[in-house]
Simulated scan of single mutants.
Amino acid sequence: MKRINTILILMLMVTGGVFLAGCTSQEDTEEVPDVSTLNIGYQPSTHQLAYMTAKEKGWWEEDLAPYGVENVREYEFPTGAPEMQSMLAGDLDVAYVGAAPFVATLASDLDAKIVAAANSQGSDLVLRPDIAYEGPDDLKGLDIATFPPGTIQDTILRNWLKDNGIDPDNDVDIKAMGPGDAISAISAGQVDAVFLPHPAPTLIAEEGNGRSVVYSGEMLPDHVCCVVVVSGDLIRNHPDLVTEIVKTHIKGTEYSNENQDEVAQLYADRQGWDVDVIRASLEDWDGQLIADPTIIAESTVDYAQIQYELGYVNEEFTRADMFDMSFYEQATAE
């Protein structure tokens, strides 16, 4: 009897092991369902013309359809901070956003990577016409409106002030505002200056409410501004789709650079701006529309260090923490 029981136990162990192994194999080979709806976040500045151009041309839907995408939903944000909070909550698959708010949210365990650049430079410090300016010392005692803490504009402005011996917390009053509120504030004389991305500086100047005195490229030469961020879920489970997203972004970037007058009209119609203001902005700014992430990698690492020194994040991030260059490499190799 003892021998029979032993044999039965061994048979159960063997057959059970085969069954369990079969279950594991089935789970491992289970296909990940297609992404039928892709959610993209962006901000309405000319820094992100590549996204808007591709959207107006219908390229997002057309290019991504072969990968199962049936609907591309866009979500507009005034600044990068709320956009990154939306991505952190899992509501966005792709984000056109400033590198600085991406870094700040990475510190909150955001599962995402930068897969492409969007633009460099392209913001201006604008003073009211009646305020004299010969150098940074003239800013002492002024009220300056810019995007909220943790954004590109806030980071660059504070770092530049510190580099010029001005305490950003005590020598000036930096007021956090979205672009619309900041434009209204300087126009109404409620603030003395703004530091905003284009096309806002050109609009303020065209209306006679201010003049650009410092370009962001003078504050931090060749600095990264906006980037293309993709969720970790897409990167791990839909790499071919991510490569196509990067291809469409590259197409939007190249077309925007080669057809400036047309995309100025596309932007003006889309956002309700005067096209002459947009054309002037694209002529006047120091920004560049780019896609290659290697161009902005070092600058992004510098941002992360500045964020750390300003106390916005409590850890130092490396290039590997922030970037996945492989999708751009694949997109440009084919």
Rank of each mutant, 00 (worst) to 15 (best):
V227I: 15
I290G: 01
Q307Y: 00
L282D: 09
Y308G: 00
Y303N: 08
D321V: 09
V275D: 01
V224G: 03
E262H: 01
D284G: 05
Y303V: 02
L289P: 03
M322L: 15
Y308S: 05
C226L: 06
E309C: 00
R319I: 04
V242L: 11
P239S: 13
Y308I: 01
Q265I: 11
K251M: 08
V301Y: 07
I245C: 04
R279H: 11
T300M: 12
R279Q: 14
C225V: 14
E244M: 08
Q288L: 11
C225D: 15
R270Y: 15
N237W: 02
D286M: 06
Q305W: 00
I250C: 05
R270V: 00
D240G: 10
W285V: 03
I306L: 10
I306K: 02
T253Y: 06
L266A: 01
V246F: 11
E244I: 08
Y255S: 04
C226Q: 15
F323N: 02
S281W: 08
T300A: 10
S231P: 14
D276L: 01
E298C: 04
I278W: 03
E258K: 12
E254G: 07
D302C: 00
L234G: 15
Y255W: 08
C226H: 15
V246S: 10
T300N: 09
Y255E: 02
Q305G: 03
G272C: 07
T300F: 11
G252Y: 12
C226Y: 15
V275F: 03
D276N: 13
T253M: 07
F323Q: 05
S281D: 12
I290E: 08
K247H: 07
T294W: 10
Y303G: 01
D321H: 07
S299E: 07
V227G: 08
H238M: 12
E258G: 03
D269M: 06
E316W: 00
H238C: 09
E298I: 05
L310R: 05
D292P: 09
V313W: 04
F317Y: 12
T243C: 06
S299P: 02
E309F: 00
G287I: 10
A320M: 03
I295H: 04
G287K: 06
V229R: 09
D302V: 07
Y303Q: 06
V229H: 12
S299Q: 06
C225P: 00
S256H: 02
Q307K: 02
V277R: 01
S281K: 02
A304Y: 06
Q305M: 11
L266N: 04
G311W: 07
G232F: 13
N314P: 00
I245L: 07
